[in-house]
Design a protein around this nucleic acid. Structure first.
Lengths: 137, 137
DNA sequence: TTTCTAAATCGGAATCATTCCTATTTACAA
DNA sequence: TTGTAAATAGGAATGATTCCGATTTAGAAA
């Protein structure tokens, strides 16, 4: 999902396109990795002095519900990243910079029979570590 | 890991065997599933009026470091369960009752080559849903 | 362009899990 | 039985997140 697609989706659904909303999307379109609400605020404060937590969280949740952002919980903090809508996959997540790498392996196929009588509602497969860049610092 | 093993481990390492520590272990030995600090306090308050959060969290972390308990984060809350030391595996976790089922599939083998230049520090594979018991309620 | 109104935002208080701090109590070794 | 380090209580502090009443604003309608 890129910036333009996301903005169009927003307008199509009848949401107002405010400057803050644009900048939030621009931020995630640019960084390409998992980021926290705090990261986002730090970035936004340059151009939007006095922006409130309420605005940040309200929009993060809105974008998440709309499928524009995806989310995961790392060290007790919620992290967000631009959603890659293409196909089902998982992520390697760098513990240092938060950037991700797609992992196309999904173990769910092999698991189905083991869980015959279980109602599966979701799953999570994530790999944590250091990306090549962060190892050499 | 059962109650007796855990208590022995505690003594061997030179930690004092207090009544609260025993009861915490007894709780996890009995419930067999992921539980929160809050769940634990609720249980302990019957026999230990006025028990403090500090005691709960200090011991949960101690047990976790000692490998007696394992932990995961669900809905922004840390959950703990008795560690199954036998072999590497993952869990199906019931969203309703917190009970778990072992999953012996581990996708990490298939992933190694994709992440040749990445330093892998950990991974998480969890499946969420409803166990057979909770579906029929 | 101007007006109107629901949506969006602000500012700050409230909440909730967790951690921290100091004084007091306790397990257990000597 | 005593001494002491470890463990605990009680409550304040922290940090992320949510909530709420008052104010502002995007964008539709006139």
């Amino acid at each position: 999902m890129n910036l333009k697609e996301a903005m169009n989706l927003l307008k199509d659904k009848g949401y107002k396109a405010t400057g803050k909303r644009k900048d939030i999307l621009a931020y995630f379109a640019d960084v390409d990795g998992y980021r926290t609400a705090k990261d986002l605020i730090t970035y936004l404060e340059d151009n939007h002095e006095g922006i409130s937590f309420d605005t940040i969280y309200r929009n993060l949740h809105l974008y998440n519900e709309m499928g524009i952002l995806e989310t995961t919980e790392l060290n007790g903090e919620r992290h967000f990243r631009m959603n890659c809508t293409t196909h089902h996959h998982h992520h390697f997540i760098c513990n240092e910079c938060g950037k991700t790498k797609e992992i196309d392996v999904c173990p769910m196929d092999e698991v189905q029979q083991t869980l015959a009588n279980y109602a599966i509602e979701g799953h999570k497969f994530e790999i944590y570590g250091l990306c090549p860049t962060c190892q050499s610092v």
